[in-house]
């Protein structure tokens, strides 16, 4: 079963200036997928379209066979590239918020992960450091039993130790029936955990895609080296 299908998808922020043009993409269930490409190629736009933060000019997005919208938001767990919490809330209140709105939220798992990180759940978010906030956000997103996880630049702007923790959390809390889509240009950090990759060009053109293991074996290169070759300026 395909967890995500984009059919003839186009998005322009200004008339005629397409960020994505006639894009077609099919992603099956049970994979960790890297959506990789240079800055400005439309990775974040695609993610925002999938979770309904933007509306396409043309085309269709299906999540588990359903048109993307409020109903499919219950199937999608989204980690944006910035903290999206109300800073006056306490971590505990945030946990209650997720438990209230997401039927698939595993409160016990979230508490356990936060305890592992020694994060005080009675603390207000505004008192936490940027890195800790990002960890809280990741824990909440990965504590859902969603069908599709959309992680937009999850390791950008964090130190190497935090990167390691984030990747460990993603792999350790991943349900084999679900799909994780990770967008990033920090390929060397994530290529070890990816099953499949999509090299995305400008206007949403998929320049290269396939199994990471097969591509590495065939080319004798790392995914990072392949990326550099494809996008050489």
């Amino acid at each position: 079963m395909n967890v995500l299908e984009c059919k003839n998808l186009s998005k322009a922020y200004k008339k005629g200036n397409f960020v994505l043009r006639d894009m077609n993409l099919t992603i099956p269930a049970g994979k960790i997928v890297g959506l990789l490409g240079p800055n400005g190629c439309g990775k974040s736009t695609l993610i925002k379209l999938i979770c309904g933060l933007l509306q396409p000019n043309e085309g269709e997005i299906l999540v588990c066979g359903e048109p993307a919208g409020a109903d499919t938001n219950s199937l999608v767990s989204y980690l944006p590239e910035r903290p999206y919490f109300d800073s006056w809330m306490k971590v505990d209140e945030l946990l209650a918020y997720f438990a209230d709105f997401y039927a698939d939220f595993d409160l016990e798992k979230a508490r356990r992960l936060l305890a592992d990180l020694n994060i005080n759940t009675t603390a207000k978010l505004k008192t936490l450091s940027k890195g800790t906030k990002e960890k809280v956000q990741l824990v909440l997103v990965m504590s859902r039993r969603a069908k599709l996880y959309l992680l937009d630049e999850p390791i950008a702007g964090v130190d190497p130790a935090a990167r390691e923790y984030i990747l460990k959390t993603i792999v350790g809390n991943y349900n084999p029936d679900s799909t994780i889509i990770i967008t990033t240009h920090l390929i060397s950090d994530i290529e070890e955990i990816l099953d499949e990759y999509y090299f995305m060009g400008f206007s949403g053109v998929i320049r290269q895609s396939g199994s990471v293991a097969e591509a590495k074996e065939a080319s004798g290169q790392t995914l990072d080296a392949m990326f550099r070759e494809v996008y050489r300026c």
Partner: peptide
């Protein structure tokens, strides 16, 4: 403004709730 059009909007608009 904060709940819908600041960074918080990323959470609010991705809740399984209609507009």
């Amino acid at each position: 403004y904060k709940n819908l059009y600041s960074d918080e909007g990323y959470l609010t608009f991705t809740l399984p709730v209609s507009r």
